[in-house]
Amino acid sequence: MSLRSQLLKGILDGCVLSVIEKEPAYGYELSKKLQQAGLKDVSEGTIYPVLLRLQKNGYIRGEMQPSASGPNRKYYFLTEAGMKVLNEIAKEWEQIVIPANSLLKRGNSND
């Protein structure tokens, strides 16, 4: 896998985990929240392979629950392992984003 896609994968994992950390969510809700957060370019379907992978790794668990609006939905909850991984991702992110930001930031004059 290329560094670029690996980086994106890690970021998306972190974003999904942190949305679930705030409140358990089901697939559709989760994709809405990511889009509301500004991740407009993430196609809605993209989260499902991510959810399956996070589930397989034991970072989240899914549970079918009745929802307010009728049908049962599979809600995702953060596990303890997921919490740990989320903290790690957040820490790594801070280590990358601050130096990367100062390197990559283009001033308006350069646009």
């Binding site: 089901y26 697939g27 559709y28 809605e44 379907g45 499902y48 399956l52 939905r73 599979k74």
Partner: peptide
């Protein structure tokens, strides 16, 4: 079990969309 669960999630998402 896992296949049917994800199929249902995708279907729900599609209906919402």
């Amino acid at each position: 079990q896992q296949s049917e669960e994800i199929l249902m999630e995708i279907l729900d998402h599609l209906i919402e969309g």
